[in-house]
């Protein structure tokens, strides 16, 4: 894990609440919303506190007594997924990404004792954000439409 890897939430774009161990996230610009379940809520809590994958892994290891290397893969995989969805901003892309490193074939699902995080994306609200700009303006000028 690269030490320069840092994550933060852009609160202008993303709002979130945790309830019943599940994080509900809404991306206000894309119109997508998400459920983060399983171990994801704990990772989400910790990434806000530590701002880095390394910090999240370290504290999870302490909390759960989990030293399995796959825990780091699980955390990094989720944070990367969250970044791809625009739910986290990556302030310094991880070295591994620049080098094209891939996640090991072995599934992180059973990583130690830590429950597998599950991120579910919902796209059924995107219609509200569809934009139809007004390009045709009458000779008299905007706001008269043709």
């Amino acid at each position: 894990m690269a030490s320069a890897e840092a994550f933060r939430i852009d609160s202008r774009k993303v709002v979130h609440e945790t309830i019943d161990g599940e994080v509900i996230l809404i991306h206000l610009e894309t119109g997508n919303y998400y459920s983060l379940d399983g171990g994801g809520a704990e990772i989400w809590e910790l990434v806000q506190r530590h701002g880095s994958a390394g910090g999240v892994v370290e504290e999870l290891g302490r909390r759960h007594g989990d030293t399995d290397r796959r825990l780091a893969v699980t955390v990094r995989g989720l944070l990367h997924e969250l970044a791809v969805e625009g739910l986290l901003e990556v302030e310094d892309p991880p070295v591994e990404d620049r080098n094209g490193e891939t996640v090991p074939d072995e599934s992180p699902d059973g990583a130690g004792t830590f429950p597998r995080p599950v991120l579910t994306r919902y796209t059924d609200m995107q219609d509200f954000l569809l934009v139809d700009p007004i390009h045709e303006v009458a000779d008299s000028g905007w706001p008269d439409r043709k």
Binding site: I19, G21, I24, I26, L28, Y122, M125
Partner: peptide, 24 residues
Amino acid sequence: AAEALRTLAPSSMLQLPYAQRDSL
């Protein structure tokens, strides 16, 4: 409660202009 929030909140926040972030 999470399912209720997932049903209530996105459409409330995404339909109205200038989303009120604290409404979540």
